[in-house]
């Protein structure tokens, strides 16, 4: 049950598009900043495989400039931080 949080930076002027894209993506919850071009993304996937696929999917988003992880919880063994 991996849980991760990220700061997602959209490409210029594409914050709304990024929010829409992430909202439409399974396992994703977002908290957009109101006065900065940043979106907080929390992912919650059932297993590592799904998480990998989700990350691949996220990489393909054209409106996403960068994604940086701020928190990770990989599985029940508490190997995440």
């Amino acid at each position: 049950m991996p849980v991760f949080s990220y700061l997602a930076i959209p490409t210029e002027g594409n914050k709304d598009a990024l929010c829409a894209a992430l909202e439409a993506t399974d396992y994703c919850e977002i908290i957009p900043a109101e006065n900065q071009e940043v979106v907080v993304l929390v992912t919650d996937t059932p297993d590592k495989e799904t998480d990998k696929r989700l990350q691949a999917q996220l990489k393909k988003l054209s409106c996403l400039q960068s994604l940086s992880m701020t928190y990770g919880h990989a599985d029940d063994n508490r190997t995440g931080n």
């Binding site: 049950m1 849980v3 700061l7 919850e29 908290i31 957009p32 900043a33 929390v42 701020t70 919880h73």
Partner: peptide
């Protein structure tokens, strides 16, 4: 699980706050 997710979100919010002074949600 929800607690972990909240902690994850909180962590991201805090990081954002350090990186972008004045950022608000």
């Amino acid at each position: 699980r929800d607690f972990i997710k909240a902690a994850a979100a909180q962590s991201a919010l805090m990081t954002a706050a350090v990186l972008f002074p004045g950022i608000t949600f």
